[in-house]
Simulated assay, not measured.
Amino acid sequence: MEDWVQYLNYGAVVFAFLAAIFWFWSAKVPVHKFTGVPWGGNMDELEDAVKRQSVRSAWAAIFAGFAALCQGIALALPNF
């Protein structure tokens, strides 16, 4: 049982680290260059940038959810 708790804790660390990487990667999408007023640029470029940012943030949220799930199970497991 202690092995499972340790594996789940390691899993939580890995997933949390992946979430941090993906959120940082999401923040690095160059959306700020599209926010000038007036802006006469191509809306497709802005749409693509926002999509990339959203997809990366979604993956980060998934990894954060797995980290929380692993940690929750690791905390509950000794009580069973």
Rank of each mutant, 00 (worst) to 15 (best):
M1H: 04
E2C: 04
D3Q: 08
D3I: 01
D3N: 06
W4F: 09
W4V: 03
V5F: 00
V5T: 02
Q6P: 03
Y7K: 01
Y7R: 03
Y7W: 09
L8K: 02
N9P: 03
Y10H: 14
Y10P: 03
G11K: 05
A12D: 00
A12T: 00
A12S: 06
A12W: 02
A12M: 02
V13G: 06
V13S: 10
V14H: 01
A16L: 08
F17I: 06
F17M: 11
L18H: 03
A19T: 04
A19L: 06
A20N: 10
I21W: 00
I21R: 01
F22P: 06
W23F: 13
W23K: 14
F24G: 14
F24L: 15
S26R: 13
P30D: 15
V31M: 03
V31A: 04
V31T: 06
H32M: 14
H32A: 15
F34P: 04
V37A: 13
V37D: 11
P38H: 08
W39N: 13
E45Y: 08
E45V: 04
D48C: 09
D48W: 14
D48P: 06
A49W: 07
A49I: 04
K51D: 13
K51E: 13
R52S: 14
S54Y: 10
V55Q: 11
V55E: 09
A58E: 10
A58T: 12
A58R: 10
W59I: 14
W59Q: 07
A60N: 01
A60L: 01
A60D: 02
A60K: 01
A60S: 06
A61V: 09
F63S: 04
F63R: 04
F63G: 03
A64T: 04
G65D: 05
F66H: 10
F66G: 04
A67L: 02
A67R: 00
A68W: 05
A68I: 06
A68F: 06
L69K: 07
L69Y: 12
L69N: 05
L69S: 07
I73Q: 03
I73C: 02
A74M: 01
A76T: 07
L77Q: 01
P78T: 00
P78W: 01
F80V: 05
F80I: 05
